[in-house]
Each structure stands twice: as C-alpha cells, then as structure tokens.
C-alpha cells in the first residue's frame, strides 16, 4: 500500500500533461456552462443548471474512455511489467492507482466548477439538492471509470470503448433505470433524486461499480501472471 500515493501522483501528472484531455475538460466544465448560462431562455436557475449538467455529463462520460485508454492500454507493456511491477510490494496497486488517478483527475475539475458555481448561486439552489445531485454525478463518473477499465481488458482499441459507452449512455437515458443507468434524463433525476427508494437503488448501482473495481484487480492479477 505504501506505493499507492506515488502511483496516483504519477498518473495524475501524466493526465495533466495530456493537452487534448485538459482542453476537452475545460470546454466541458467551463466553456459549456458559460454558453448555456448566456442563452436567453425563460428557465429558472435550477432548470438551467440541469440543462447544463445534462450536456456536461454526456460529454464527460464520452470522454472517460479516452482518459482510461491514456493511462491504461488494456495490457501490460514490457516495461510496466519488468520495471514498475517489480518495484511494487503489492502489484494490484498499479491498476488501483490508475483507476483512482482518473477518478481524482475528473473530480478535481468538477470540484473547482462547483466551488465557482456555489459562490454564484449559493442562495438560489438549496444545498441539499446540490449535494444529492453531486453524489449522483460522482456515482456516474466512478461507475463509468471502473466499467471502462473492466471493458478495456477485453477491447484493446479506444474507439470500441467509446462506441460501447455511447450505446450504454443512450440506453441509460432511454431506460432511466436506477439499477442500470449511468446517467438519466434531467427531468427524471430532478423528480427522483430525493426519493429514498431511488437512492437505495443507486446504492446497488454503486455496489456494481465497486464489483467492477474488484473485477479490474482480479483481471489485472491474471494478466500479471500470464505471459
């Protein structure tokens, strides 16, 4: 476990250095909300926010496979195996570090966006709504990352990951199932998010994400022992 912070730190550095990913994230987190906010509509602040959030999440979830592929090719390169893994006391931490790094990287962008958002709209949006929505956002991101890592063990090319995630996302929004959907129709989310049963179902969804995380560790261990 002692090496986990170093592994995360290094992968974060690599992600920060990827200009394309950073540009897309800035577009999604900053430019898109500014454009949406300046559209002349009759909507309330919350409605505007949900509209923006919907677009943000769709683009963000589509971007996640690119981030996953950037840090993890789906297989172990010879230097990863013989140089990095050889120096680790727990080799599974290598994949855990990558998953956590992608999660942290997206979360930092989200955090800054919502700090600014909260400063501007603190008295216009109830804090409880904001926090519950944010929980759903993080849940979706966590699930998409662990799911993308899991699939990357089988599908080597990033484009296949993208296609799969887009199909999954379309089905998610169409079905609006709390057990299955990575993201929802904003109206559905707005009405359901305070419902206890909905949140219990999302808890089950979270458990599936955690299972994917364990699955990633198991698949990784198998890859390490395979030649």
């Amino acid at each position: 476990m002692r090496e986990l912070p170093f592994l995360i730190n290094f992968e974060l550095k690599r992600l920060i250095k990827s200009r394309a990913i950073s540009v897309f994230l800035i577009l999604i987190m900053l430019v898109l909300p500014i454009i949406m906010n300046n559209l002349d509509t009759q909507e309330t602040i919350i409605e505007k926010w949900y509209g923006t959030l919907q677009l943000q999440m769709v683009f963000l979830l589509i971007l996640i496979p690119s981030m996953v592929s950037y840090v993890w090719k789906g297989y172990l390169q010879s230097f990863e195996r013989a140089v990095i893994l050889l120096k680790l006391t727990n080799r599974a931490m290598y994949i855990v570090g990558k998953i956590v790094a992608v999660l942290l990287f997206v979360s930092v962008y989200l955090f800054f966006f919502y700090v600014i958002f909260f400063i501007f709209y603190a008295n216009k949006i109830p804090i409880s709504i904001l926090l519950i929505t944010l929980f759903q956002v993080f849940l979706s991101i966590f699930y998409s990352i662990t799911f993308s890592f899991f699939i990357s063990f089988y599908l080597k090319r990033t484009v296949y990951l993208h296609i799969l995630l887009i199909v999954y996302l379309v089905f998610s929004i169409y079905l609006n199932s709390p057990y299955f959907s990575i993201w929802f129709n904003p109206d559905y989310l707005q009405h359901q998010m305070t419902d206890l049963l909905f949140n219990v179902k999302r808890g089950i969804f979270l458990s599936i994400g955690i299972l994917f995380m364990f699955g990633n560790v198991l698949l990784f261990k198998r890859r390490v022992n395979d030649k």
């Binding site: 090496e3 170093f6 592994l7 290094f10 550095k13 690599r14 250095k17 990827s18 390169q77 010879s78 230097f79 195996r81 013989a82 140089v83 990095i84 050889l86 120096k87 680790l88």
Partner: peptide
Amino acid sequence: LGYLPQKFDFFPKVTLEESFDYLCKLK
C-alpha cells in the same frame, strides 16, 4: 533485483528526471 526488459521503453511524455524520481519512490 534490477531488471532491464527487452525493447525497453517508458511513458513518452514524462522527462527522464520525473521517470527516475517515480521509480526511486517505488523502490
């Protein structure tokens, strides 16, 4: 143990110093 694998390479967009620092930390 130290190991130099065949066709050695590393992550392209990190500097030699950063790579070394990372590997020293892991060691």
